[in-house]
Design a protein around this nucleic acid. Sequence first.
DNA 1: CGGAACGTTGGC
DNA 2: GCCAACGTTCCG
Length: 697
Amino acid sequence: RSSGVENGLTRSSGIENGLTRSSGIENGLTRSSGVENGLTRSSGVENGLTRSSGVENGLTRSSGIENGLTRSGGIENGLTRSSGIENGLTRSSGIENGLTRSSGIENGLTRSSGIENGLTRSSGVENGLTRSSGVEKSLTRSSGVENSLTRSICVENSLTRSSGVENGLTRSICVENGLTRSSGVENGLTRSSGIENGLTRSSGIENGLTRSSGVENGLTRSSGIENGLTRSSGIENGLTRSSGIENGLTRSSGVENSLTRSSGIENGLTRSSGIENGLTRSSGVEDGLTRSSGIENGLTRSICVENGLTRSSGIENGLTRSSGIENGLTRSSGIENGPSQYDHSVHSHSSTTTTNGHNHHGQCCAVTMDGCGLTPVLDYTAEMERYRSFANFYAKTNVNMNAVNSMNFPQSAKLARITPPMFPGGRLGVAGVTPWGCHDNVNMNINAAAMLWGRKPPVHQATPLAPPTTHPPPLATHMQPHPHRTGGEGKQHGGHASSSQGQETHHHHGNNNFLSGYTTTDHMTKQGHTHQDMLSLSDRNSSCNGGGGANGVNMPNFPAGMLGLPPGVIVMAMGSHNGVNIPDSSHFQMATNHNQMLSDCHHANQTNSSPCPSTSPGMTSGGQGSGASKRKRKRCGVCAPCRRLINCGVCSACRNRKTGHQICKFRKCDELKKKAGSIQLESPPSVPSGEAFRWFF
DNA sequence: CGGAACGTTGGC
DNA sequence: GCCAACGTTCCG
Ligand SMILES: [Zn+2]
Ligand SMILES: [Zn+2]
């Protein structure tokens, strides 16, 4: 060794282990420097710890053992960082923006953790999405931006919730009792929506009253308890009606032709009452004759058409009389002083008019009054007429829409049932993307389609309760006589042309048009059979009899979430078959697993990443394609379109599915759009699949 | 076997 | 390039 004084400092240099080292005391500390592996390093003991510093890659770093862990610190990008191996994981910590953060790779994912606002958070990129997780208020939350929306996930009371701002409104989604519910504040009111019994409903407190609204049988209805009475209101046939049970009688009231009327069934007779021209009148069908009774000029009178003749009967001066035009002559008959004159006429009238016998003049009046005058009743035929017109209206509307923009609101849908296996990493709720929301230019006036965040019963429950479409009466045909598809290319598809519409009207197959199917078929059917479905305005679920069930009113309960589903995995389930009011007849449908709609992406990732076209089984004979993918590619399952679970029902693909054999435009995998061949650069679209079905919007 | 959906082609 | 159809592949 050679020692001497250099720059005032005593140093000793020599060769140790083949390496030339120089040691000395600097600033009171003994240090030894030398060249190791081409790098000049200086080591010494600082604060009891042996450290070695040097310049690596242009950066001055100092390494040593601290607390048993070897760490290396230095300044990188102006920031002092210290890295080392902790628990087998290489981590680097430093102060960034005043906050101490530690980053490292965990499970293949680079994560950075630190304390922000007093809360320890860890952020990183997962499945292409940057997420930050931490514990807030004792709840572990993970937030990130998904589909442009910032969402935060957490588990509360064993329920996985995902909250975020959607359309300016903060909403929180979660699965409760197997049902996915989304809650948030809308217009200052806290509402919670979800699918119950197959129907999408939204409940909340309005004006102090808890109300629940949803679409039932295509009609938006809102029900709640008002003044102790459960009432359900909604718009039917363009008219706002409110129904409920009053005094044991189910009544429905609404404004018709600007007149408020209330109808219901009394004593087995449907009557409708309301105020017309300032006079309260009650009409209904009695003994086959439509009668309208009310008080005119202080006298209770009842008019009806009998044998083509309009007659008006009532009590005048204590005498029951019936007047009308007979053979061009206005005549009035009645009983005066004893035996009846024109007995027949009077008879018939009074008998029909009054509940019981006739001749009981005064009393008759009273009875009539009480019975009909004030109590609202419904005119059966009138009612029927309404339905009839409605049917027409609907039919027209339908046609119209078809002509204009395809159709308006697809209402039925099949739900996607995603099986657990599909979510490899799916820790969180899954969901489909509605066709109406988003950027899609789909009609917005869609009745919330039934999207079911619930598990579908394991069994398919085929043809459960005679689905509505099951018995499409001839009427259906009436409405849509022929499949008027643009071109008459009903080539090979035999019989009923290929026209999707045509079929829709008949079958309840895959993509049918709700409107045509439901409307014409269902409604008309009802009309024909006078099914109370149309009349019943109240709680359908309960009121409906078996027949009602036929219309899919009742839903199987979705034993959601109990199979091996990862907590929070939101499964969409449903299916027209399950009787949701949503008929199976619509283009609008959700991907169901049982029908393979989604099955493709099962192996999506793998398959995708490892095309392995090796075999190319039974390739198309006309193999003019050179090399490129011959194998049928599969949807990636993770892109936005793939994550969508429901067919919009309005795009060309949906409309022409029968002939087009194409997946809904909005569901067409981005990857597949890429014209087979193009290699996937950067982030392989095939991110962990679970991701694919993670979010709704 | 049937439903879903990818690939391909011909027409515009 | 877009779209309707059709052939064909997958898959339950
Ligand atoms: Zn579509
Ligand atoms: Zn995709």
